[in-house]
Amino acid sequence: MNLVVLIKRVPDTETRIQIKEGKVVTDGISWIISPYDEYAVEEALRINEKLGGGKVTLLCLGPNDAKETIRKGLALGADDAVHLNDPAFGNGDATVTAKVLAAALKKMQYDFVLAGKQAVDEDNAQVAVRVAELLDLPHVNSVIKLELAADKQSAQCTREVDGDRDVATTTLPAIITAQQGLNEPRYPSLKGIMGAKKKPIVDWKAADLGLDPATLSAKLETVRVDPPPARPPGKKLAGDAATAAKELVRLLREEAKVI
């Protein structure tokens, strides 16, 4: 099948977020494919490996150096990629990002689209769902199991939402977002990493998508970013395990008043 996977480049989850003058310092950050998007890539690869044939295309909106992250996805086995790379997309919020992704998908051919449940930078959990609405496609969110019907015109999904599990069906094409549990993503092989260098990545700008940058104005503005409030220093409880356990219960009750 022709599958498109939406991938976002985010700081490695190991990153300590440094803040200077109300902004996140991005120098020196190492970037990864957002972990939920990795599940989406893995699922797309598995679907085509099982069916034999087909194509997996990565679609990423990001600055110039997002190419490096796109190559990581190609190294996993995706066939090619589209890089939405234009300063006009740069300062967009989720509303703008979704509009640009939707405009790109309109130019592409696909049987369905996979994405992550959320990108682990701003934790918005909205871009993929917005794209579905903009393209008038159905969506299923937070999927941990995906089964295609024999005729590939529909799919049955198990979702994990708010601690519940439910089963949903959808017609295809649709946008399906991945939740942890969908699969175990592979590591890139050496051959994959070498091969990725030769795989095609096309760049599309606003003009290629027929988008007027003036229509790409954000609805939201991030005024500033601050570190989370510092926690007061804690105390270690003295004595052996039993003594400390009893003292803990007393403190939770009398000092912290949480039980």
Binding site: K219, V223, P228
Partner: peptide, 16 residues
Amino acid sequence: RPIYAGKAIATVRAKA
């Protein structure tokens, strides 16, 4: 709103 799962807090203004 917390971002990066709480590693930072963003202040976000609705432009309209």
